[in-house]
Design a protein around this nucleic acid. Structure first.
Length: 219
DNA sequence: AACTCGGGGCA
DNA sequence: TGCCCAGAGTT
């Protein structure tokens, strides 16, 4: 086996740090993943996982979820916060799934992003996790960790999903998202990263004092 | 680009 | 008590 380049070494180390990396949301099918991911926006995976098993056992399909009034759904999801917008969006999405997509979750990005409450990131999560379609879901954690690690080779900055795809081998696109986001949540925090728990400090711009701020520019 | 949604977990 | 959370929609 040949010598690993910089990004290959980083990804190999991440794989060793998080051997059990997987989607943090509990789901059994595309519909459950879609709803769980809409719920997970600006909430913690733990808080979402606390309510979704009970919710999905009683309302496992878009048709059955439409038996809820918005007020009833708000009460079901109240504990995760931002519940009014999410309840409205989820019911509107269920309506579209039934009326336009035969009760199924579409596997095309433009269709997914046309659903209320579904943006770029949620669409990528569903494409990659539910349909095994090449995509990398990117969020603030993924951008922060990617740029601290300098995954964009040299001085370039990862700003888009496409930027990240260019710098990660395609066979690792799906799992790399989980490595990066878990690392961001558990170790590589935005404010006070736990560098003592990190095996990647040798590659890290934060650790060497050349971190990137929220604009993606060198500090 | 800035603003809004938000109850709950955790230090 | 204060800070922050697996974003998206609106202005």
């Amino acid at each position: 086996m040949g010598r690993l380049n910089r990004n290959e070494s980083i990804l190999t180390t991440l794989a060793e740090m998080y051997p059990d990396a997987k989607c943090a949301l509990i789901f059994r099918n595309p519909f459950e993943l879609l709803i769980a991911t809409i719920l997970a926006a600006q909430a913690t995976d733990k808080s979402v996982n606390k309510i979704t098993p009970g919710l999905f056992s009683r309302f496992p399909t878009p048709e059955s979820m439409l038996s809820l009034t918005q007020e009833e759904l708000e009460q079901e999801i109240k504990s995760i916060g931002l519940y009014k917008n999410k309840a409205r969006n989820i019911l509107a999405t269920c309506r579209l799934l039934v009326e336009k997509y035969g009760g199924q979750v579409p596997s095309v990005r433009v269709d997914l992003e046309s659903l209320p409450g579904v943006g770029r990131k949620t669409a990528s999560v569903v494409l990659a996790e539910a349909f095994q379609i090449p995509a990398i879901a990117v969020d603030t954690h993924v951008f922060r960790v990617s740029n601290r690690l300098g995954l964009a080779q040299g001085k370039d900055v990862v700003k888009t999903e496409e930027d990240l795809m260019k710098n990660i081998p395609m066979d690792q696109w799906r799992i790399a998202h989980h490595w990066l986001i878990i690392h961001g949540r558990q170790v590589c925090h935005a404010r006070k990263p736990a560098c003592g728990d990190c095996a990647l400090t040798a590659y890290c711009r934060h650790h060497t004092g050349n971190d990137y701020d929220e604009e993606g520019e060198a500090k």
